[in-house]
Design a protein around this nucleic acid. Structure first.
Lengths: 202, 202
DNA sequence: CGTGAGTTTGACCAGTTGGTCAAATCAAGA
DNA sequence: TCTTGATTTGACCAACTGGTCAAACTCACG
């Protein structure tokens, strides 16, 4: 247990290696399915050495989740109320789709946690996430009031975007089992763009 | 291990109780997160007694998955090539949404399996599921060729329906954390109906 | 009733898992 | 170089897990 001074070079390196390894293991096997030994091996450390940097398996998991939550919510944060409504929403969708393509482990990490009832991030959902979504649905509703986009249920609009974009990362195996060689994202991008353009154009 | 005669009354009752309990436990905690003790307790049996009916934890899991796969795919099976195209698709969506509302455990069972790479049903995906989807996309493509519905990527159309409808069961916690008291399905039904009507109407 | 198959259980086992600890090793500043 | 705190490790532990087994019990049916 290092004292709470400024972290040393080694501390920074090993903590980063552990979190990287934990992301691999937790996202592939879920919390319960991941073992500390596995994470330690993947990080190139012995188990006791890993537990020198994090007090427990759960601590690694929550450190990962909380650390990645802001990364995960960044695309929605960027939704700009002063931009062109339809383009803002389409950009948001594109950012989410890119994240599914480029950060599938992060997506599956949250998917694993959510599908099992979010026992470890339930609080963040009903505070941080809810606050962010509430804030952005106000903007969406204003755009609808101003006749800039079609009137639809703003919460379900956001849910649909999450569902559609994250599906490609979370259920990747299924998508690939059906599409075979075809790159999922090649077809997905124009599809979702058309979908939301038609939905939101008056 | 009962002989392979006709199952007795007790066998039928206990096997059903085990599968019901296993559905609860596996869907809530995933394969690795579920314990045989937990399933036995929930089924009202001792662990050795449970293992008298199923040879192993994995056997219970695969029995569940394979038994439910056809239930799960039934809505798509019902998509009728002789029906009115848009109405057929909308009915399919409604059936899937009903399943999310009425059978969320089944949805999460598959979600858990898929998000972890489908180690135990990979074969069923690339054979049964792929065959079914291939068959139905032919119908969708024909409808598009005949100018009955808009031309979109048929596979991604199906993926989007899965994503949207199953989202409400699989990520239920998240949806409820944001919607609060509001019934998710009340808003979801008209939303998805509008969405696909706009997408598919020429 | 009796009897044989079907059912249930307590005791047990080996492997795994998260976590501890004292001792050994290493690194960097005085 | 020397010392002190940071880092690493092998040995270990208790709890849990999936699974086994022989013995006990129960049920249906002749």
């Amino acid at each position: 247990m290092p004292k709470d001074r400024a972290p040393t070079r080694i501390q920074r390196k090993n903590r980063a290696a552990i979190l990287e390894a934990a992301l691999n293991v937790f996202s592939a096997h879920g919390y319960r399915g991941a073992t500390v030994d596995q994470i330690a091996a993947e990080a190139g450390l012995s188990k006791p050495n890993l537990l020198y940097y994090f007090p427990s398996k759960e601590a690694i998991h929550t450190a990962l989740l909380t650390g990645l939550l802001e990364v995960w919510l960044a695309p929605l944060h960027e939704l700009n109320e002063n931009g062109e409504p339809l383009e803002e929403i389409l950009s948001y969708i594109r950012r989410k789709l890119e994240m599914s393509r480029d950060l599938p482990r992060e997506s599956r990490l949250f998917a694993n946690e959510l599908v099992q009832g979010a026992p470890r991030i339930h609080d963040a959902l009903s505070s941080d996430l809810k606050a962010l979504v509430d804030e952005k649905t106000v903007i969406l509703t204003r755009w609808m009031d101003q006749g800039k986009i079609s009137r639809v249920h703003p919460y379900h609009l956001i849910f649909s975007i999450w569902a559609l974009t994250q599906h490609y990362a979370d259920f990747d195996v299924q998508v690939r089992a059906i599409l075979g060689d075809e790159d999922p994202f090649e077809g997905a991008e124009p599809f979702v763009e058309t979908l939301y353009r038609k939905l939101l154009t008056l």
